[in-house]
């Protein structure tokens, strides 16, 4: 079985490349490397399955970063344990030859003491996205936050909210919301995003907690209606929807969903800095900007290595204190 396959694969590879070229015009990597440090491919580990939001941002950014630094930046999906498995995979590679996507949910597991790696093992490279979340309902159920809150008060603990999973930031925000609204919801964890959306569409749950950008199609079609945005200020396009600050939830609980890149703490600083500036160029590209707008990412999404590092440290402290306050810390 060996020989014919190997041959076919080569022919295929050539054919695929031809196809690629004929359909797009020439796009071969002919440029010179920007710095001498990069002589091997730098893995970009996505610690979640293919097709999700983190995967999309990594794949959009990797092409442009690759052009900047002159070596391949292959995207690798390493799913498992809310992002922990992938981050550990990145840490086990040679420092500086691998980076991974870090999102809020993974950071929360670090803060909660449930992750397989420590906060000081990673070093920030850049933040690519910061985006608002929202509580959403199915169309023709609750017209606005007031109606939802009234219904929740009438049936405490009966309305179901689809969330990510135990000890996530979703749970913190939900707990704060419950406090302000004076009622209880029932959080139902669905680890797969698609299952959360199907649950709201099919009426298995009443409310969905999700980033606005990840459910754009349902918002545009009117199937999902945001009733409360998790943000300090009104979200573009949803100015009439109250934000968590409007209903009196303290700012310290308003933790934005973010997606950024991190490397091992042992990675040389110049590599990190070069990567960080390649990130900036990626985030400034037209294609990426269109993508950002599509997912409602905020204008200040990009942060360089130093800013992102500070941001992560702040978030880590905030999440830890919030988890402690709502009694969600691991023993």
């Amino acid at each position: 079985m060996r020989a014919p396959h190997v041959r076919t694969r080569r022919v295929l590879a050539a054919a695929a490349a031809t196809l690629f070229l004929t359909s797009t015009g020439c796009q071969v990597n002919t440029h010179q490397p920007a710095g001498a440090q990069f002589n091997r491919p730098v893995d970009l580990v996505v610690p979640f399955g293919p097709g999700g939001g983190a995967d999309a941002v990594a794949r959009s950014a990797s092409n442009i970063i690759s052009e900047r630094i002159g070596v391949d930046v292959p995207v690798i999906n390493v799913d498992g344990a809310t992002g922990s498995s992938g981050t550990v995979r990145m840490l086990s590679a040679n420092a500086g030859q691998s980076m991974s996507v870090l999102i809020q949910d993974t950071l929360a597991t670090v803060s909660a003491g449930r992750a397989s790696f420590q906060f000081d093992e990673i070093k920030a490279v850049c933040r690519l996205q910061s985006m608002p979340s929202a509580l959403m309902v199915r169309k023709d159920t609750y017209a606005n936050w007031q109606e939802l809150a009234d219904a929740a008060r009438a049936n405490p603990g009966k309305l179901k909210v689809a969330t990510v999973g135990a000890s996530s930031v979703d749970d913190i925000v939900l707990a704060a919301t419950e406090e302000v609204a004076g009622t209880r919801f029932r959080a139902v964890p669905f680890s797969e995003p698609s299952e959360r959306y199907a649950a709201l569409l099919g009426g298995q749950v009443d409310v969905l907690y999700e980033q606005l950008g990840d459910v754009r199609e349902y918002l545009d079609s009117g199937d999902f209606v945001p009733v409360l945005t998790v943000a300090d200020e009104p979200v573009d396009g949803y100015a009439d929807v109250p934000s968590t600050s409007d209903i009196g939830i303290p700012e310290s609980v308003v933790l934005p969903q973010f997606r950024g890149l991190v490397m091992s703490a042992d990675a040389p600083q110049e590599i990190v800095d070069q990567m960080s500036s390649a990130c900036r160029q990626a985030s400034e590209s037209r294609k990426f900007a269109a993508f950002q707008e599509e997912v409602y990412a905020t204008d200040d999404s990009y942060q360089n290595a130093a800013e992102f590092q500070r941001f992560l440290e702040d978030q880590d402290k905030l999440i830890t204190s919030q988890l402690r306050e709502y009694d969600m810390l691991a023993d």
């Binding site: 399955g49 293919p50 097709g51 698609s194 959306y197 199609e217 349902y218």
Partner: peptide, 13 residues
């Protein structure tokens, strides 16, 4: 718009 499998999730992406 809901992928029912890993394969359809990639296509969605």
């Amino acid at each position: 718009g809901i992928p029912g499998s890993a394969a359809t999730a990639v296509i969605l992406g």
